[in-house]
């Protein structure tokens, strides 16, 4: 087994005893196949039990362990040490979120925004169970499938400079999920969601930096979703003004 001694510089913050975060270095004997999360667990288990971070599944699906690794937002369970440049590895909590403790950030803002976009099927009318499942062809499924893959890991918010500068921005993941439901053949709720998303804090805050899509571990492409929503919102505006009789 090939082990390498690697230094991790980890941002620490204990609000009870400190006024601002500081870096703390740990030297970890890393196995070849380790991800950054394995190193954090090693630190927690053998070097320093006071280090705090979120994690659970270790298979890139629960979305708990997003953090900044060498300045890039990544899932620490998918960040293979062998893929990172040699030398010290710097680990910080996700950018653009307040730090609760060590690598743990405050997620309240995202949770509120997610709720605000009504991320659920709003049917025209309630379908009785006896009527069985809706028909949805593979083609209709493909329309929205990509945008349903979001694990809410929030790497996209940490990558998005607009969210950093304008925290009111609804942001990539919540907008991608809005788009996901808008595109679902079972949903008739787009109009309700438009009130929230076709606004300045909604899609129009996005300037298509595209960073969200580049860091997304699930290839959801929120940036693409937002641009598509901008086009659709623009079309709405023209239709509404040029053909007022279409309004119902």
């Amino acid at each position: 087994m090939s082990q390498r001694q690697i230094t991790f510089e980890i941002l620490r913050y204990d609000p009870e005893t400190e006024t601002e975060p500081r870096f703390q270095a740990y030297c970890v004997p890393c196995e070849e196949e380790w991800v950054v999360l394995d190193a954090l667990n090693y630190i927690k288990d053998t070097l320093d039990g006071t280090l705090n971070y979120r994690w659970s599944c270790h298979m890139a699906v629960c979305g708990s362990c997003g953090m900044m690794i060498n300045g890039e937002p990544m899932l620490s369970c998918k960040a293979f040490i062998r893929d990172l440049p040699a030398g010290t590895i710097k680990v910080e909590p996700l950018y653009h979120f307040p730090i609760e403790r060590d690598l743990v950030v405050v997620l309240d803002d995202f949770m509120d925004k997610l709720e605000s976009v009504k991320p659920y099927v709003i049917p025209k009318k309630q379908r009785p169970i006896e009527d069985g499942p809706y028909k949805q062809t593979p083609k209709q499924l493909h329309q929205y499938q990509q945008y349903s893959m979001c694990i809410n890991c929030l790497l996209c918010y940490a990558a998005c400079p607009q969210y950093g500068l304008t925290p009111e921005f609804i942001g990539p993941a919540a907008l991608a999920l809005t788009h996901r439901y808008n595109l679902d053949s079972r949903d008739k709720g787009r109009r309700q969601r438009q009130e929230v998303v076709a606004t300045h804090e909604g899609v129009w805050e996005c300037s298509f930096v595209g960073a969200c899509s580049e860091v997304c571990p699930k290839d959801v492409d929120p940036a693409g979703a937002i641009q598509q929503m901008k086009i659709a919102s623009t079309a709405d505006w023209y239709l509404e003004h040029l053909m007022p009789w279409r309004r119902s």
Binding site: I99, L165, A211
Partner: peptide
């Protein structure tokens, strides 16, 4: 909770993507 301010004028120097 500790809030890290985003530098208003130099934020885009943070990485090549920006």
């Amino acid at each position: 909770p500790y809030v890290r301010e985003v530098p208003r004028t130099t934020w885009y120097m943070r990485n090549n993507r920006y």
